[in-house]
């Protein structure tokens, strides 16, 4: 093999390593100061798939913390701190509130639909957190709620707890295909 070829290979390798590092930055970034916008379709978000006539498609808005391990970890901490666990169960197994680790979604599994559910509240018990907690924390909770049923990358989702766990860590949850069930 000729020498320039080796140099080119090294250059390509270095470039790829840099690209990988940059990709990893998003996962590790700790975005303490930001206050992201509320889900921009919050008021117009659809919580059902049924539409009259031809279905209108609107661009989905993902949680800004979907690729961010710190944000999902914060979501996990807040899930206990704001007592989501009180109704939905510590690992999302459900109790007085519906389970979050299964494939059934009453008001939709998309990021902005979950955002709207947390922010607006839902009938029969789900409190409305909008205005009570910062938008950044709602988005972190959205990311964590998705992690509970394996909807985010396993490399980003929280892994095992410091203390004993009765369930599999979020990073090892099998990915559920969401089913829209609606309110019954």
């Amino acid at each position: 093999m000729s020498r320039p070829n080796v140099v080119a290979r090294h250059l390509v390798f270095t470039f790829l390593a840099c690209v990988l590092c940059v990709a990893a930055c998003e996962r590790e970034a700790r975005r303490y100061k930001e206050l992201p916008a509320a889900a921009n379709r919050e008021t117009g978000v659809r919580v059902t798939a049924l539409q009259p006539g031809t279905a209108q498609q609107v661009a989905e808005v993902d949680s800004p913390y979907q690729q961010n391990a710190w944000g999902l970890g914060e979501g996990k901490r807040l899930y206990s701190a704001y007592n989501c666990a009180g109704c939905h169960g510590l690992n999302g197994g459900g109790a007085i509130g519906p389970p979050l680790m299964d494939d059934k979604w009453i008001y939709g599994a998309k990021s902005d639909q979950i955002y709207a559910t947390i922010s607006q509240g839902r009938p029969d018990g789900m409190p409305s957190f909008g205005g009570h907690i910062p938008t950044s924390q709602i988005w972190q909770l959205v990311g964590y709620v998705q992690a509970m049923s394996g909807q985010v990358e396993a490399t980003t989702a929280p892994s095992r707890n410091d203390d004993q766990m009765s369930a599999l860590p979020e990073s090892r949850q099998s990915r559920q295909s969401p089913i829209q069930t609606g309110h019954r």
Partner: peptide, 16 residues
């Protein structure tokens, strides 16, 4: 107004 500027990473979010 800016708890994260004084003690970055603490549990208090910027209240906005």
């Amino acid at each position: 107004s800016d708890p994260q500027g004084i003690k970055p990473g603490n549990r208090m979010p910027p209240p906005g």
